[in-house]
Design a protein around this nucleic acid. Structure first.
Lengths: 357, 357
DNA sequence: GCGAATCTTGTTAACGTGCACATTCTAGCG
DNA sequence: CGCTAGAATGTGCACGTTAACAAGATTCGC
């Protein structure tokens, strides 16, 4: 007991809160007349505490307004209860839906999401990743498949489950839950070719330096490859502006499409597609008679506009849920670490923005 | 030195990583041939380390792939680097913009946002709050002004800066950065009355039990009060569906508005307003000739639709930035704690969805 | 009614870092 | 050359919790 003598004696009272600082588990234990471990057991609901003791502890907790300190708990238990999530942006309702789905799956297990966003920059991803890993997340979820060398190295060294979502990389780092953006592009191209269109185009952002919408680019690649397979020219496929695309991107691209006398266009995102439709409205160009439009992402707005937007649907909320459940499966220590690759698939939703549908 | 003798000797090597566990600052220090404090200083960039020592430490960090453990750092320094942010939902680009703005302001200071969302439920807010406080955030940002008694108590007891955003409560808990939702409603009403409309309506969600869009309701209240001031009837103001409103809400509400032969309608959110405009398009009802529409929030889509939506604009990204900067001002210990109340104002943006504009 | 099993509670030592203070080293000065 | 101020680095412990194990209390079977 040599150490107790050195302790500051700034809280003579039994379990009284110390100057300004938040009460600790020991203060609760003193007030309740038990050891701090008993309090710890009550907090974590460990079921080995007698009802009356438990009640006494609960009262002390309430009286003091005690809130456990998870940082201390994390250190002792080596479990932080953090899941890291890295997204390109939050101002895209589909990505936000992923975050919601993940949270919904993890809520009961008392996990917290640590969200970072990269603005589509590979170097920013690396920077954010370093910050996130310092919080010792128990799993890390990230979008896309393009990462910096250093980022991949950090991920591998972290020793935690790594889940890439919203794409199916050819060589996933570990787990992957998503769909093939390449197939999205092919599906769109096949659909438009099947509808008998002659002058088929596509539009996306151009990739400038570090800022790359890799998944959008995959969709473009699939689209182009499918055109090639059918012996179609690629000269109507174009890239403009910087990632991410937006309504405005579509609106500003529309005149270029019309100039090229395109019959049908695939936009790598509904946002852009909606922008195109709106600009056509303004110019008296009839969609789908004069120009047919296919988007991607099945954003809510696509269902509301006139004509309603034909698009390729992916259930992003479900994707988040699924990811959350995978994490819950993976986390109990000793769980086998065979890599999971899940294709959640995609659906072409025919609405009215394509002629002949 | 009685304790060192008891230490486990599972890492005989100098600074070699221990079985599966991540390297610690002490392993780095051994490899670099310095004390752990020197490493700590290098990590935190404290400028009292000789260049060559610093280089040696950096090399050791790189060789081991060392990543500092912020949970341990938090415990020791009593500073977690967390800012808590509670939003109704993330799938609303304006709230997402707040999160972006906040992150942008805090990025350099190495803070992490801890985001929770309440789905517009007061009890869920309380639950989330308890979880958040266990992470010992250094400040907490929350939306709106309605909280449970227990939540307010926890907030006050936390001892950290509390910032309510996106509204200006009559009696803020502490700081507030936002605008008056009540004034939004009044502004909309004044505008429509000024334009000479006779049959003026408004639409919002109805509040069911625990799930309340309080800020939307404030806008409605302001709208109604202004109608009253001008001796107008309130029978065209109605509430339908549950929060949050959406495009679909507007679309399903539109027929009811048309049935009532309303001239002009204020929707508490652009999302709903856009839905109304789209449904009118479908029914051959001309906006603004047959029905004028005013929204709120200035969502990007409102600028794209035809006719473009007249709305009330608030810069949510700037609101987030401003909040971040306030936090940075507030955090250095010893900073005066006079409550800051900031009105970021609002602007009516006239576009084409109102007749006579 | 006594020993073993079980249930309940307590004791001690980590967890990995930062603070406060102590110590060593270096340069400058008379 | 000795002394001192200041720069550079080191020592010991505390931060608030949980894991592991120990010990006391209670129950049960025969």
């Amino acid at each position: 007991m040599t150490r107790s003598g050195k302790k500051r004696v700034d809280n003579g009272g039994e379990g009284r809160a110390r100057g300004g600082r938040r009460p600790t588990i020991r203060e609760v234990s003193r007030l309740a007349g038990v050891s701090h471990m008993t309090v710890s057991r009550v907090i974590r609901d460990l079921d080995l505490v007698q009802p009356e003791t438990r009640a006494r502890v609960h009262k002390a907790i309430a009286d003091l307004g005690y809130v456990p300190d998870r940082a201390a708990g994390s250190l002792a238990s080596r479990r932080t209860g953090f899941i890291a999530l890295m997204l390109p942006t939050l101002t895209n309702t589909n990505f936000a839906a992923v975050a919601h789905g993940l949270t919904d799956a993890l809520r009961l297990a008392d996990y917290h999401l640590l969200i970072a966003y990269t603005e589509y920059s590979v170097s920013e991803e690396e920077r954010q990743l370093k910050n996130l890993l310092a919080r010792r997340p128990e799993a890390i979820v990230l979008t896309g498949s393009i990462h910096s060398r250093a980022a991949e190295k950090m991920l591998l060294a972290s020793g935690i489950p790594i889940i890439e979502i919203a794409d199916l990389p050819p060589r996933p780092i570990e787990h992957a839950i998503g769909f093939s953006n390449y197939e999205v592009g092919r599906t769109a191209a096949r659909y438009l070719i099947g509808k008998g269109f002659e002058r088929i185009g596509a539009t996306a952002s151009s990739n400038e330096g570090d800022v790359i919408d890799h998944r959008g680019e995959e969709r473009m690649r699939g689209f182009e490859d499918e055109l090639k397979v059918h012996g179609r020219p690629l000269d109507l496929v174009s890239r403009h502006g910087h990632a991410p695309v937006s309504f405005d991107h579509g609106a500003s691209v529309a005149p270029l499409l019309l100039e090229k006398r395109i019959d049908a266009v695939f936009a790598v995102s509904d946002l852009s597609a909606v922008g195109i439709v709106m600009e056509c409205q303004r110019r008296g160009v009839i969609v789908p008679d004069d120009l047919s439009v296919v988007g991607f992402g099945d954003f809510e707005i696509g269902r509301e506009i006139n004509p309603a937007l034909t698009t390729i649907h992916v259930d992003f909320h479900a994707l988040g849920l699924r990811t959350g459940r995978l994490i819950l499966d993976l986390l109990p220590p000793g769980t086998g670490r065979t890599a999971q690759i899940v294709d959640v698939g995609l659906t072409l939703v025919e609405r009215a923005s394509v002629r002949g549908s």
